[in-house]
């Protein structure tokens, strides 16, 4: 199967799962941004995403997207390490045009994944997981009323400046990952030529920055002393 055997096929899988995760981020970021204006509206959106069948299908697809993206990242990095050969350069410099993020996507990915574990524990396990457990008749000690009150958890965690700062660090790493990842996905899918390559880079950077601004506005809002 060429999607697995060929280098471009493997990269295509990375780019498709990557773009899928970016689309998820666009949705998640837009939803988060709402909490700054109305906790009620935010909870209404969160309400759609409980233990409903469509939310569960979405969650499973998302989990698959993440897992495939991560497995292929490790597989490709392993192959690339091998292709470099046994001996490494004593002196290695990069030209200025080579961005640091592009050479350290795996490192950034690991940072993003680490903080994601914290994020899933803080929000997902207190919200959707509680609803799923409840539906299955299991009790994991979660409060069902609070599980539907997303705004409560946002306030609960972000009022602590330590968490706000941690989330900002996470989002900066994610921003760097995206500034390379988005245009790179289009390049792998074969989009662009002499004229469109720079355009795709600019559009991708703008998209990456907008996504992160939507997310980061919340911890920054709390750090500035405001509350919802």
């Amino acid at each position: 199967m060429w999607l697995i055997d060929s280098s471009i096929g493997r990269k295509l899988i990375m780019s498709i799962t990557g773009i899928f995760l970016v689309l998820f981020l666009v949705f998640h970021g837009t939803m988060n941004f709402v909490v700054l204006f109305s906790a009620e509206a935010y909870n209404a959106i969160a309400g759609f995403l409980g233990a409903n069948w469509y939310a569960l299908v979405g969650t499973k697809l998302l989990a698959i997207g993440f897992v495939v993206h991560i497995i292929y990242a490790i597989y490709l990095s392993f192959q690339n390490q091998k292709a470099r050969g046994g001996e490494s350069y004593a002196v290695k410099n990069n030209q200025k045009s080579v961005e640091w993020a592009s050479q350290n996507m795996l490192v950034l990915g690991v940072i993003v994944l680490g903080f994601m574990a914290l994020h899933l524990f803080q929000f997902w396990s207190k919200m959707q997981l509680v609803e799923i457990s409840h539906k299955l008749g299991l009790d994991n000690g979660g409060d069902l009323a609070l599980a539907k009150d997303g705004a409560y958890w946002v306030k609960h965690y972000f009022e602590n400046p330590v968490y706000s700062v941690l989330y900002i660090i996470w989002l900066v790493a994610l921003w760097m990952h995206l500034t390379h990842g988005i245009w790179s996905a289009f390049q792998t899918m074969g989009a662009g030529g002499n004229i469109w390559l720079p355009r795709i880079k600019v559009i991708s950077s703008i998209l990456a920055t907008l996504i992160i601004l939507m997310f980061i506005s919340i911890p920054v809002y709390f750090l500035l002393g405001f509350s919802i």
Partner: peptide
């Protein structure tokens, strides 16, 4: 190896 579009 597999290209990661670093542009180096």
């Amino acid at each position: 190896g597999n290209c990661t579009n670093t542009g180096a």
